[in-house]
Amino acid sequence: MELNVTGLSVARGGIPVLEGLDFTLRAGEALILRGPNGVGKTTVLRTVAGLQPPLAGTIGQERDAMAYAGHADGIKTTLTVRENLEFWAAIFGTGGIDAALDAFDLTGLADRAAGGLSAGQKRRLGLARMVVTGRPVWVLDEPTVSLDTGAVALFAAAVRAHLAGGGMALMATHIDLGLTEARVLDVAPFRAKAPAHDDFDGSFL
């Protein structure tokens, strides 16, 4: 099982942002995307997760292998923590949620309404969802936003456990997770170049 991305070009709002991106992830590997704000990390992650089509290139893996976590956690504030996770477990057709609750230290909060959680606790709930999906490729966009050091360690441990189980993780993050085995890819050199000026064809750009 591997994720083999070749020649990937992505566009945001109809404008190409990154082009010619190649990387391969094998089972048990993690890759961290780095680059300045607005360079297109989120767009790459959304494309890999199958939420938008690539401009060019291939993502050599089924959409069904991906679990995506974006900036928003998709938490329903009027449901309890347990209900939130059980919903995603049912949607993804996986079993218990106890392991996920445990991994992110949410067991004590399980019956609290998600609306009453702090930002960091909500984030932990959002990340616990990744465990619940049971999918091999985790696609994570800035997963550590609003997490404290303890929670970051929990997250790193969860990722490590996922990798040890033969999973993969692709993430965009700025902070050091202590995941020493993770490779780092700087996407800034892949910034899309403006096309030649007289190239006025069907695509307008």
Binding site: P195, F200, L205
Partner: peptide
């Protein structure tokens, strides 16, 4: 008009 928007967008690309 579309061409103009495309050119403006490209300017932002640098």
């Amino acid at each position: 008009a579309r061409r103009m928007r495309a050119l403006l967008a490209r300017e932002r690309l640098g």
